[in-house]
C-alpha cells in the first residue's frame, strides 16, 4: 500500500522539475529506480501512478518505467561482494554478519523524458 504514497511523491517531484525546467511539453516517460530491498510491487506502483497522474498537466500520457536493482552486499571483514538471491544478510564467503548493503535500497526518480512533438 505504500506504493500509493510513493506514486504521489513521484508526481509532485516531477511537477516541480517541470516547473524548474520551464517546460511546456508533455512528459512521455518517468524513469524510476527501485531497489529490491524496498519491497515495491511494480504493478501496484504502476497502477497508483496511472491513477494519480489523471488531470495533471503534462503528465496525462506519461508512462512510468521502473527498473529494479538487486541487493548487493559487501563484507566488512573479507571485503567480498555478493548479490543476494535469498534474504540472508551474511557474507557468503566468510559468514561474517558485518556486512554493508552497497545497492538495493534505492528509491529515486532517475530522469524524465519529454515528448519531442
Amino acid at each position: 500500500m505504500h506504493e500509493l504514497q510513493i506514486a504521489t511523491n513521484i508526481i509532485s517531484i516531477v511537477e516541480e522539475e517541470i516547473r524548474k525546467a520551464g517546460k511546456t511539453e508533455d512528459i512521455e516517460f518517468v524513469y524510476f529506480i527501485a531497489g529490491k530491498m524496498r519491497a515495491i510491487i511494480p504493478e501496484s506502483l504502476q497502477f497508483s501512478f496511472d491513477v494519480m497522474k489523471r488531470d495533471k498537466p503534462y503528465l496525462e500520457d506519461a508512462e512510468l518505467k521502473i527498473s529494479e536493482i538487486p541487493i548487493k552486499i559487501r563484507c566488512k571483514n573479507c571485503k567480498a561482494e555478493h548479490t543476494l538471491n535469498e534474504p540472508v544478510f551474511r557474507c557468503e564467503t566468510c559468514s561474517s554478519p558485518e556486512i554493508e548493503i552497497i545497492s538495493g535500497d534505492e528509491l529515486y526518480i532517475d530522469s524524465i523524458e519529454f515528448s519531442d512533438t
Partner: peptide
Amino acid sequence: MKIQIVRDVLEA
C-alpha cells in the same frame, strides 16, 4: 528530450 533528476522519492 531527457533530463536527469536523481531525486529520492522519500526525500521530504
